[in-house]
Each structure stands twice: as structure tokens, then as C-alpha cells.
Design a protein around this nucleic acid. Sequence first.
DNA 1: GTCTATAACGTGATAGAC
DNA 2: GTCTATCACGTTATAGAC
Lengths: 203, 203
Amino acid sequence: MQSDSSTEERIKEAARVVFYKKGFAATRTRDIAEEANINLALLNYYFRSKQKLFDIIIVEALTRFVKTIKVVLNDKETNLEQKIEALARNYIDFILEEPEIPTFILTEVRNNPEELLKKLPVREIIANSIFFEQHREAVELGKITEPNPLHFLMNLLGLIIFPFIAKPMLMAINDLKTPEFNLLMQERKKLIPIWVKAMIKTE
Amino acid sequence: MQSDSSTEERIKEAARVVFYKKGFAATRTRDIAEEANINLALLNYYFRSKQKLFDIIIVEALTRFVKTIKVVLNDKETNLEQKIEALARNYIDFILEEPEIPTFILTEVRNNPEELLKKLPVREIIANSIFFEQHREAVELGKITEPNPLHFLMNLLGLIIFPFIAKPMLMAINDLKTPEFNLLMQERKKLIPIWVKAMIKTE
DNA sequence: GTCTATAACGTGATAGAC
DNA sequence: GTCTATCACGTTATAGAC
């Protein structure tokens, strides 16, 4: 492993592009070789098989996907409001760099939940987070109406992630182009915390 | 075409089950035949090809998916608040009957957006809806803070649909079982309208 | 390390008997 | 209409020359 443009790295980057866009089953190793401008045989030389190459890509994606949440939810220095702001900001920035990552992850996890999720300690990372603890305290103090933190998490992640998943549909509905879509996502970094705070306390 | 348990119908139902779960590319015609308890050759006898069978399934799914929104968004008898309530109620009920339909549609649309969406007049149905008209009026009257109806639609649909898409992850995080998950979704039929109304008017 | 050629396999589809 | 047997093809993976 030397420069970023080594053959091995080129194949990995190409694999990321194609797998993200089409998923494991619809991807042909030829697509990856073409995207990487390498000979097909080199793919197997470096990674043994399509499956092994895919495993590397999906684990890296899952790790970054979960870590981006984890870091925020377990930050001892921030309160709940700050966590909402940080999550919206960091997560939207993260996804804007790789807009296809949410759909990629969610569809591949669907195809293979137990296999993929046991590779990462998702449960410990999220369920025992400082975020959940702070949520519980806020509920006890009457600052939050809905006591179930799962609703809170679904709402927050839904507001952040859903537009990226629904992007193809949304672009068809309003024939939106990608630059305009990205602008909407930039707006949401500021809007989502406002909305979520309004949702928190209802009569 | 006679009873619902005719061979043809059995194959279609099996195809729906398998395609919903695995998507087009990962599905083998043998999987469908097995699920339907029929001989593999019968699939081609009735539907000519895997692609033709798939087209039937996806168009049916898309039609129902869009129609469920369309009916609500174009109802002249209801105001904006009532549309929010109706959408949460109808859509969650609809998806609870076929929980895999959102992921199925979103991933297949990703693979083939132009081809699939030109088959349905999604744009006219949504973009020119009474819902958007009522939203515009409410903005002019100062009843809604955020003027862009796309944000409104993304939020509403995200709150409704996202939990179903993220279900495998959520179940891993809190090792939730399906009955408990469904209970959460029932709760959301009432909670989402409350949340959305709170989001609408912010300072 | 990289290439060409090809083997090995899985899958969609059909021929033809019943 | 339904079955068994098989073809035809595309794709993954490897052998072997360079």
C-alpha cells in the first residue's frame, strides 16, 4: 500500500462507486474493472473475489455511517440541543460527500441484516449512549413530552436521511436538479434543529 | 383468470414476496417458483420473462404507493391539518400491510429512475395538487413559517416512511421485535400530526 | 504485476413429452 | 397446463504467458 493511485486503491474506489450505485447483486466485476481502468483479472488478484471486495466496502461504509452518529451521541461536553444541531450539521455534510451511502447501506442491510450488523457493535454504541441518558433526564424534568427515545431518534434521523433516500422521487416530482437539491440540504442543517426543538414539547 | 389461487395468481403473489424482499437483481426465477410451489417453466409460460413479471409487480406497487398520497393531497373537502392527519393514518396503515414496499420502491427507482417514473405521471399528481395550493395560501397568511413546500413534504413523508426503511437497523439497535415495532407505528399515526403542527409555525 | 484465454458455474429461458 | 431435460448465455474466477 503506497500512493492513493496504486492499482489496489483504484480498484477499491471504483468498487465503492459502482456498489454504491447499483448494490451487490446488480454489480458485475466487469463494471468495476472498467470504472477502475484495469484488467478484470487484477480484481481477483488483489481481492480474491467479488464478495471479499464487497465486504471491505460495506464494512467501511457502515463503520463511517455509525461512527458519525456515535461521536455526536456520546459527546459528554454537549447537551441535548447541541447534539441535535451537531447531528444535523455533521450528518448532512457527511452524506453530501457521498449521497448514495444511505440507500446503499439500508438496502444491503436489508439483504443481510444479521450478518452485517453483528460485525459492528451497533447496539452498545447507540442504546447506551449519553444521548439516551440525557433524553431520559429531560423527560423526567418534563422538558420532553414523548417519553420514548426511539421516536425521537427515528424523527431526527428521518428528517436528516430520508430526503437523500427519496432524492430520485423528489427530483422527478419537482424536476429538481442536484445543485438545487444540495441547496435544500444545506438549508436543512439549520432548519432541522429548529423543527425538532418545536416537536419536543407539545401539549 | 379464475380464482385467486389460480397458478397465475400464485406466481404473481410469490413474485411480489421475493421481489419486495430482495429486489430485481438478487432475485432468481427459481426463488419465485419455489415460493409459489410451481415448476420453474410455468413462470415463463405465464409471464414470458423475469423482466415482464417484474414490470407488472413494480408498476402495481408504484401505482398504489403514489395513489395513496394522491388521494389525500387532492382531496377538496379537507384542509391542510386534516390532510396531515389523513396522510399519516392512511399511509402508515397501507405500509403496515406491506412493510417492505417503501424500500422496494425506493431501491428499484434508484436503479431505473427515468424508465420507471415516466410510466406514472407523478409530477402532475403531486406538484399541481390541492395540498401545494393550500400550503401556499397558509404561507401567505403567515400560518406557516417555512415557505418551501418541498421541505414540508420531505418532513411529512420522512416521518411516516423512514422508520420502515430503517427497520432492520432499528431492530438491531434496540433489539426490537416486529410486534413492538408495529405498535410504535400505530402510535405514530397520532403523534406525527401533533409533531408536524408544532413544526409548522416557528419563530 | 499485468495481460489473454478459458474454465467453471449459475441462471434465464425453451423444447418437447405428457 | 404442467412437467423434465437441456440449451444458451453471461459472469466470476483462474491458468499460464509475459
